[in-house]
Design a protein around this nucleic acid. Structure first.
Lengths: 228, 228
DNA sequence: GTATAATAAATAAAGAATTCCCGATTAAGT
DNA sequence: ACTTAATCGGGAATTCTTTATTTATTATAC
């Protein structure tokens, strides 16, 4: 009576939804995922928007709208099947099949990112690191080999790498961006504060630690003032 | 004829605006700042919204609205005085007087953050690091001393520290949050993926690297699909 | 001086995102 | 079986953010 639970149903529809998903929703999805992965429940457990919202300090309607973008359907009175929900979010973000990526800059930040186990669960698989410091070339950081920058473009092309992560000092940002693009890389995750320019066909996402801190600063500032 | 240019004019008004500033605006302000700091122009140079917008790939009206929240006023046909604009943004964010902060977790990510010179220019001055690894205690990382976690609450109180930065492994997130709060800390910048719960009077900002990557992933995914 | 063009500032309009509301559904208790 | 309460899903309403438009100002060129 039941049709096979094919998690790949509606590839086209998913990509169309992906195009339309609001950025705020995209930014919340990983939070749901993090929460759901950690609540360790029975294989057939369900969870409601009310519960999720309560845990994440959101309103249930927003959670429902967000989850709806992934295509999951819930059951009245029960909620969403936890396991299927995790899968739906992963699939929507493309995190079910981690993408291979190159990282440039094997300093402290690069090391931190290479060492963060979580990324592999979040769709990012860094397969090689690059640096211009000859003393680092040939070494391994967290099991990932550090190579000469010169080898990057050709290797990226040969391995069909789509994603580049930039963790070098900011003054090289534009130069490395261009190098990555020359290797056929399509998306760049920029951890430097530098602003870089790319063509429209390249996806550029700035990690923007300063933006995050600005929100904190502003709140702290206004709160402090209001206590006067 | 001219009244003194007092950059501290209207403290109250600024704090009120700070309360009202939209988060998207707050997140863009550091980008303007980054750009303005790097254009190195004459002391009396002016810059227009059109120029800023062009460089940052935004529309002029939005830039103008954003800058207006800081209280800066521009001149028709000239734009905003660059130096005063930098000051206005810094002041609005509270970055003109860097806040002392404690950092917990002296691993790779903690080291990266301690080593990032930029933060001192962005209102954050990390004065001490804390760890539970006894082999690290007593050492210095980037000139900052690593101390035992036990000392944190009392020291935080004595030094009147307002900000805590969490870069330890995620499993300690809640525990360290509580420890920071017990030391009187008012704002927490959480780099772990863990979600932590705090009272309403505590400011919690999650750095959320995964959220940033989710935006990239989704764009990459939809773009790839649409090429079929 | 006058005209022109560029710009800020204020206001209006449009567009997005969030929240509210209501009907439909379903599990669980009586 | 019936009732009740919880929840989802869709659509409307609201709120927030962005973008467009208009007006006023001012530097610059003539």
């Amino acid at each position: 009576m039941f049709t096979e639970q094919n998690s790949n149903y509606h590839e086209k529809a998913i990509s169309e939804r992906a195009k339309l998903a609001p950025v705020p929703t995209l930014r919340r999805l990983p939070k749901y995922l993090e929460y759901l992965r950690n609540i360790r429940v029975a294989a057939d457990a369900h969870i409601s928007c009310t519960q999720i919202a309560g845990a994440l300090d959101l309103v249930p309607t927003q959670v429902r709208k967000d989850l709806a973008t992934t295509g999951i359907v819930g059951k009245p009175k029960k909620g969403y099947p936890v396991f299927a929900l995790i899968q739906a979010i992963e699939e929507f973000l493309g995190w079910n099949a981690p993408q291979d990526a190159f990282l440039v800059g094997s300093g402290a930040l690069g090391t931190a990112i290479l060492g963060y186990e979580g990324f592999r669960k979040n769709g990012l698989n860094i397969v090689a690191a690059f640096d211009n410091d000859s003393s680092k070339i040939g070494t391994k950081i967290r099991g990932v080999e550090v190579m000469s920058l010169e080898k990057l473009p050709e290797l990226a092309r040969r391995m069909n790498i789509q994603i580049g992560v930039m963790t070098m000092p900011p003054q090289y940002a534009q130069q490395i961006t261009d190098l990555l693009i020359s290797g056929g890389i399509k998306a760049i995750w920029n951890f430097t504060p530098s602003l870089v320019v790319v063509d429209d066909d390249i996806i550029l996402e700035n990690a923007q630690l300063a933006s995050s801190f600005a929100v904190l600063s502003s709140r702290l500032r206004s709160r402090t003032h209001n206590l006067d």
